[in-house]
Design a protein around this nucleic acid. Sequence first.
DNA 1: ATACAATGATACGTGCAAGTGTCATTAATG
DNA 2: CATTAATGACACTTGCACGTATCATTGTAT
Lengths: 204, 204
Amino acid sequence: MVIQKEAGHPKSRPARKRGRPTEDERIERRSQILAAALPVFLQNGFGATTIEQLAVAARVTKRTIYSYFGDKAGVFAAMVRILATTVSTDAPDEDTLESLAARIVYRLHSAELTGLHRLVIAESTRFPELAVTLHDNGDARHIARLAEHLRAERGENTVRLAQPLFTLLLGEEHRKRLLGLLGAPTADEAVAHARAALETLQLR
Amino acid sequence: MVIQKEAGHPKSRPARKRGRPTEDERIERRSQILAAALPVFLQNGFGATTIEQLAVAARVTKRTIYSYFGDKAGVFAAMVRILATTVSTDAPDEDTLESLAARIVYRLHSAELTGLHRLVIAESTRFPELAVTLHDNGDARHIARLAEHLRAERGENTVRLAQPLFTLLLGEEHRKRLLGLLGAPTADEAVAHARAALETLQLR
DNA sequence: ATACAATGATACGTGCAAGTGTCATTAATG
DNA sequence: CATTAATGACACTTGCACGTATCATTGTAT
């Protein structure tokens, strides 16, 4: 028999108060579970991640995870949906086409978003609806926004370049990043990448 | 007790002769196991695929799989290596830049290769060396070949367009295909895609 | 010919993760 | 205030896949 009362170890298991939480605590806890799940999924992938790992990372018990999300797939789906919709809404009004392009590069090439993309690609067979969600809230919106700026700044006849431009803003670098062959770019590198893409299409 | 002697069912388990195989049979069997493994991995992904499934698909026993490849990772790695190196060597001398481009599109957008890419992306954390292998034998060679043709057909100053051209030959369509949102293109569609990419870069 | 190697068929031990059950605890709810 | 909901702590059952073992069988190697 191991005595483990008065534990409270630093790196140990869940360490919260017991009992029924307030409504605010419940909402916050839900977010925290999802936030804690991301690095775990990014590290291990969906299949190799266990509920136990998610519970430890979120500092709750398995029981709580099950009550909130049903199962591992539920956690994964909820996490992807939140992140996917977050991508689209955090873009304020851009000033120029170039700064918009640079922002897109910086965001999409980040470790977080390439990792998320990798996860969704990996599980696209099991969760086709997540693939749709990610694409609709990501690529599709970015392309639409680029089209708007092209029309406004470069004229109607450049709108057809929105999709090729978006493709070039990803480029071979993004393929490498999906394969884990390249780290995320700095802000300066992102700007340079965006400019190069615009020059390739003679949009500067 | 279920009697299952004299089985030989059509869709049943392994159905080969027993005993030690000839050297030729061994070589052939190895290939057959890997060939049979591809659709299984494509369907279920690496993690959700079991050795038992691979054994049934290849019509051999688990024991044989273990003796040939050690474990599931061994099968996966051997399969990816063979397919990756196959991609590069089956390209004969191309006539024109346009036909080369169309061929690249047709190959890379095929269900087989997008699926393989998806698998390697998914497992790039666990098998980084496979990601390198796939990229070196795939993208890198394609870009190099495009550069050769650009130099020969369009002049030295177009070589810098090899990588952007390759990127456009994949395009948003390939992203969708990695996400399972789009089926493989027909040969005609591949040609049209290639031409559009060349026109975007004003290479026609 | 004899020994050996590889395989099919089958069973089995092992470990791990999923998911559930129990009880004490705390707070919301009415 | 009494009841109920949600949680932590922890044990537990169950299922599954891994990997190995056994034995008969067949062909190779010497």
